[in-house]
């Protein structure tokens, strides 16, 4: 497996980030692994980390006592799990569970928020990237709300 310094700059989420900013990000990053079934984070707990998935699949879940555990979305290699680290009150809104063995890069949200406060250019660059992820997820959710396949073809 490639080192973080090799992998992260090539990841679509960090593409185009200048080398100095990338060094700052790398200072807040570490490799992590999850067994199938293990939780990356749980609803209501502090959102102090976000994950860049290197391998495996993660399910974002919501639990309802009546319906059970429902999967809201799944995320795979190359995608990013979690943006609650950037938005108060910094609490997870969903559970994230490893569906298969997962290798990821964990980025320390506290660390990154602090760096962003000190360096607005880095903060803007990261915010742009998070906004893009949020935009795509919002599009996905809106289109799914249309229930296109439920209507007559």
């Amino acid at each position: 497996m490639r080192t973080l310094a090799e992998y992260l700059p090539e990841h679509p989420f960090f593409a185009g980030l200048d080398p100095a900013s990338m060094d700052v990000v790398l200072g807040c990053a570490q490799n992590v692994h999850f067994a199938a079934g293990e939780m990356l984070f749980q609803t209501g707990s502090p959102a102090d980390t976000f994950y860049v998935i290197r391998q495996g699949r993660v399910a974002l879940e919501a639990h309802d006592p009546r319906s059970g555990t429902m999967v809201v979305a799944t995320l795979s290699e190359g995608e990013v799990a979690g943006w609650s680290w950037l938005v108060p009150p910094y609490r997870w809104m969903f559970d994230a569970r490893a569906v298969s063995p997962v290798s990821a890069v964990a980025l320390d949200g506290d660390c990154l928020r602090g760096k962003c406060d000190q360096d607005p250019a880095l903060g803007y660059a990261l915010m742009q990237r998070v906004a893009h992820v949020m935009y795509e997820r919002l599009q996905d959710a809106r289109i799914r709300l249309l229930d296109l396949y439920g209507e007559a073809p």
Partner: peptide, 19 residues
Amino acid sequence: VTVDYGPPGWSGRVGLVTT
């Protein structure tokens, strides 16, 4: 294969096919 609604027990993908 991906589905719009992932019921309990589904271990496949959930999300829009275009993604």
